[in-house]
Structure formats: C-alpha cells, structure tokens
Amino acid sequence: MARAGLTPQIVTSFALEVLDGAGPTGLTLKAVAERAGVAPPSLYKHVRSLEDLRVLMTLRVMDEAAARIGAAVMGLAGDDALRAFLAAFRAYAREFPYRHALLESPPPGGEHQRELDAAAGHLVEIAFATVRGYGLAGDDLVHAVRALRAVVVGFVGLELGSGYMLPTDLDDSFAFLTEILAGGLARRAAAAS
C-alpha cells in the first residue's frame, strides 16, 4: 500500500480533496491516507498530526485565496477594485466552502505560526490595497478594511449557511451591498479631505 513520492505538500493536497468532498467531520488521517493510497502510519513521515495537517491546509488555502483575490484586483482601483475583491472572495467561498471556513477560523499555528501570520498578512494587504484607492488614510483605512471584511464574510457566511430564506435574488443583494459599501467609502474619503 506504500506510495512513493509523498511530501507534506502532496499530503496537504490530498487532505484538501478530502475536506472538499467530506467536510470537516470527514477529515481524518485515515481518510487522507486512503486518498493517498498509503497506510495511516505512513502519513506521520510527512505530518505530525491532524492538527499539523490542518495548519498546512490553512496555509495553502490562504495562499490560494490571496492569489485569486489579488489577481482579481490587480490593476484596479476604487469601485472597480472593491467590486473585484468582493466578487473574488465570494466566488472562492462558494466554490470551496470548507476551505473558506479555514480562512475564518484558522487553527493555532504552533511551529508554523510565523508562516500563518505572513499568509494572513498577505490577504490583509490585498484588502488594504483595495480600499486605499478611495484615498483613505490612518485609522480610516483600518476601519475600511474591517468593514470590507465584515461585509464579505458576513454575507458569505449567511449565504453558505442558508441564512437568506427570502426569494429575492442573492446576486442582486450582493450587488446592492457592494454599492452601499462603495458609496460609504467614497463619502468617508470625501469627508476626510
């Protein structure tokens, strides 16, 4: 049953496949080993524990999300960047709802804490770059990033959790929310000038 060529990165890929298919309750070392085609003890050559594996998964997810969202906003500013950020974040969460949960509730990093902090920082920098186009500075810039995150995480969380039961189109609601945020950021920037 041994499989040559496993690395922590490959084991992480198998674990993400298990997570995508079976959800967090189905993520076990046994399930990952089965997906990898090895006996469960073979995984310990590459990861210390399920918690260690979750940290590696979170690092990968943060990098994936940053790459997607960063590519979406690249070269854009103001409302265009904001729309692109929100749409890319929502699309990632809808495509990978269980991976999105890792973004919002990362495990303790242990020996990987510096890497987790750096990966999270990269995502935050993309958010800062997105709202910087409104001309905000200082505390207003921090408040804007927090508002951006609250808006998108809140909407996506409710959407994924079936929190929106009325028949009104969710895409229309998301566009409405986006325009309200864009207008609010523009007004705040104008008032601060």
Rank of each mutant, 00 (worst) to 15 (best):
A15C: 11
D20I: 06
P24M: 06
T28P: 12
L29S: 07
K30R: 15
A31G: 07
A33L: 01
A33V: 00
R35Q: 14
A36Y: 02
A36D: 03
A36I: 06
G37W: 02
A39H: 08
S42L: 03
L43C: 01
L43G: 00
Y44G: 01
H46L: 00
H46M: 00
V47P: 09
R48N: 02
D52W: 01
V55I: 07
L56H: 08
V61Y: 09
D63A: 14
E64K: 00
E64G: 03
A65H: 13
A66R: 10
R68T: 15
G70S: 11
G70F: 07
V73L: 10
G75A: 11
L76A: 10
G78E: 08
G78P: 14
D79N: 10
R83S: 08
A88P: 05
F89D: 09
F89H: 13
A91W: 00
Y92C: 04
A93D: 10
R94Q: 13
F96S: 07
F96D: 06
H100N: 10
A101V: 08
L102N: 04
L102V: 05
L103D: 02
E104W: 06
E104R: 15
S105Q: 08
P107T: 00
G109K: 11
G109D: 03
R114E: 10
D117P: 03
A118Y: 02
H122Y: 05
L123V: 01
E125T: 04
I126H: 10
A127G: 11
F128H: 02
F128E: 03
V131Y: 09
R132C: 11
Y134M: 05
G138A: 13
D139F: 07
D139N: 09
D140C: 05
L141I: 09
L141F: 06
V145N: 03
R146L: 15
A147Y: 03
L148R: 03
A150I: 07
V152S: 08
F155L: 12
F155E: 06
G157H: 12
